[in-house]
């Protein structure tokens, strides 16, 4: 029997109830998904069963994981953050501006670091050979961008509103529209890969990937805000999305970066 949305809905509800009970019983808030999250079927054979081994970084400031690889102007070109200008013609779709700040857990800006994004086109199709969704490819849109954060930790992308797309987790599975983000912090231990969503998407409750974040407030932090101030007149609609990196900061980096 192929899995239906009703089966997945039930599993999502069960996971939510289990999390609520854990918190009610005094367990800490979970900001990240559990790697073992059955409604997302691909996770079943791909999560470790042994507990992770905790490393107390305060005991050893020399760990290479407390330092980050460096990226610089050589690693980006001037238009890498404008995904509408990577081909001769204009891509089809609604132009958007996505901007925000990259911060560490102490609210300090992460400066000069690399942010990479990738996404589907406006029809919900990735420019990837293995993609099987038969929505049209856009010859003027690849959907890859990168940038360095500025002195305030700010980043800025111009792109096209991505479309939702179907996938094969269960019958009738559709991913809400999203942009994939890959981010570096001041320490390799702060590395983050995640997805940004758009406000008020009706697909949110059905999506096991978004729902894998069982904490309601944490899930909201994956959804950008519409920001009229970022909208460019007669050009694009604006979205604001701040990113906060988890994990230990490299304390030595406090000043001068």
């Amino acid at each position: 029997m192929p899995l239906t949305q009703a089966d997945i809905d039930l599993e999502i509800a069960t996971e939510h109830a289990a999390y609520d009970k854990r918190v009610a019983d005094g367990a800490p808030v979970e900001h990240h998904p559990r790697r073992d999250y059955a409604p997302y079927r691909s996770s079943v054979f791909r999560h470790p069963k042994q507990p992770l081994v905790a490393i107390d970084t305060a005991q050893d400031p020399e760990l290479v994981e407390l330092y980050s690889p460096a990226f610089g102007e050589r690693d980006v070109t001037g238009i890498d953050n404008d995904l509408t200008r990577h081909h001769r013609g204009e891509p089809i779709g609604e132009r958007i501006t996505v901007s925000g700040r990259l911060l560490d857990r102490d609210g300090r800006p992460v400066r000069g670091q690399l942010i990479e994004i990738w996404q589907a086109n406006s029809a919900g199709r990735y420019a990837h050979q293995r993609e099987q969704h038969d929505a049209p490819l856009d010859p003027n849109f690849t959907g890859v961008g990168r940038t360095l954060t500025d002195a305030e930790g700010r980043y800025h992308f111009t792109t096209i509103q991505p479309g939702p797309y179907p996938w094969r987790n269960h019958v009738g599975a559709w991913r809400p529209a999203h942009i994939h983000f890959s981010v570096f912090g001041t320490a390799f231990a702060q590395r983050l890969v995640t997805q940004m969503y758009f406000p008020n998407d009706p697909l949110f409750p059905y999506d096991p990937i978004l729902q894998s974040v069982t904490d309601d407030a944490a899930r909201q932090r994956l959804v950008a805000s519409y920001d009229h101030g970022l909208s460019v007149p007669e050009f694009s609609l604006g979205y604001h999305w701040d990113i906060v990196l988890d994990g230990p900061a490299a304390t030595w980096i406090e000043e001068g970066r």
């Binding site: 900001h31 990240h32 998904p33 997302y40 691909s42 996770s43 911060l103 857990r105 102490d106 609210g107 990479e116 994004i117 990738w118 990735y126 420019a127 990837h128 293995r130 993609e131 690849t142 959907g143 890859v144 994939h180 890959s182 983050l192 890969v193 995640t194 997805q195 990937i209 894998s212 974040v213 407030a217 944490a218 899930r219 932090r221 994956l222 701040d242 990113i243 906060v244 990196l245 988890d246």
Partner: peptide, 21 residues
């Protein structure tokens, strides 16, 4: 407001990063 500075949750890299990363 430090109590508002909470981590952005992680997500899977997904299957289609191959043309990007």
């Amino acid at each position: 407001r430090p109590e508002q500075v909470l981590p952005t949750p992680s997500h899977t890299v997904g299957p289609f990063y191959g043309y990007a990363l």
